[in-house]
């Protein structure tokens, strides 16, 4: 707890206060005890902590909000309760547990308890093992066998959920609900972003 106190003091010394959640996220990055500030409905508390950490690692806050700021972990918690059958949900959570265990095997602790270097070591490992999926056409999968690992599948879902939040869809990416016409081909700059609505 010394570190927590130290940070609080430092913040005070610099003239601003830290909210509990900001503090918690700073603490996460220090690899110390983290707490969950929302009650999961379908994840266990431990699963939720790992999911939140994973969300934050894959889509962190940059000059735009990250997955955690936009409530993606909470959405995923609700989503698996709504769209999965009980059996599918149980199987999914089992996969999640196996993923959590992989981190324990690799780093000696769960993902949420890892420091930055440990997190990077584990996720680099997982990323290397994930085989890319080829995009499908009109509902038909191009590759029958699913070569992605849990990390890869989680990433897909997370990315989709993140970029279809209202904030990402209307503010982070260019939002054009009624284009009114089609410009078939124009030259872009390195700063051009992809359209929010695909």
């Amino acid at each position: 707890m010394e570190r927590r106190e130290a940070m609080k003091n430092m913040a005070l010394a610099m003239g601003y206060t830290l909210s509990a959640s900001t503090l918690a996220s700073l603490m996460t990055s220090c690899g110390e005890q983290v707490t969950l500030d929302w009650p999961p409905k379908n994840f266990s508390k431990e699963q939720a902590l790992n999911v939140e950490t994973l969300c934050d690692a894959i889509i962190p806050k940059t000059d735009t909000p990250g997955a955690k700021e936009l409530g993606v972990p909470q959405f995923l918690d609700s989503f698996i309760g709504e769209v999965m059958t009980e059996a599918d949900r149980a199987a999914y959570l089992k996969e999640l547990d196996a993923f959590i265990q992989l981190c324990v095997d690799s780093q000696g602790k769960q993902l949420y308890a890892c420091d930055e270097a440990e997190k990077k070591a584990f996720l680099d490992e997982q990323n290397a093992q994930n085989k890319m999926k080829y995009p499908g056409i009109w509902g038909a999968d191009m590759v029958k066998a699913d070569m992605r690992n849990f990390f890869g599948k989680f990433k897909d879902t997370l990315v989709w959920v993140f970029f279809t939040t209202k904030v990402a869809g209307e503010e982070i990416l260019p939002y054009d609900p009624v284009p009114g016409g089609y410009d078939a081909c124009f030259t872009i700059t390195p700063d051009t972003k992809s359209w929010s609505l695909g």
Binding site: A57, I58, I59, P60, T62, G66, L123, N127, N130, M132, K133, Y134, P135, K155, D156, V159, W160, F163, I172, L173, K193, S194, W195, S196, G198
Partner: peptide, 20 residues
């Protein structure tokens, strides 16, 4: 667009920028 995630390697800040 961001659906390139399925065949884009990586994670983190750089990955997020690439998806955008």
């Amino acid at each position: 667009g961001f659906d390139q995630s399925a065949y884009t390697d990586g994670y983190g800040a750089e990955y997020k920028e690439q998806l955008m």
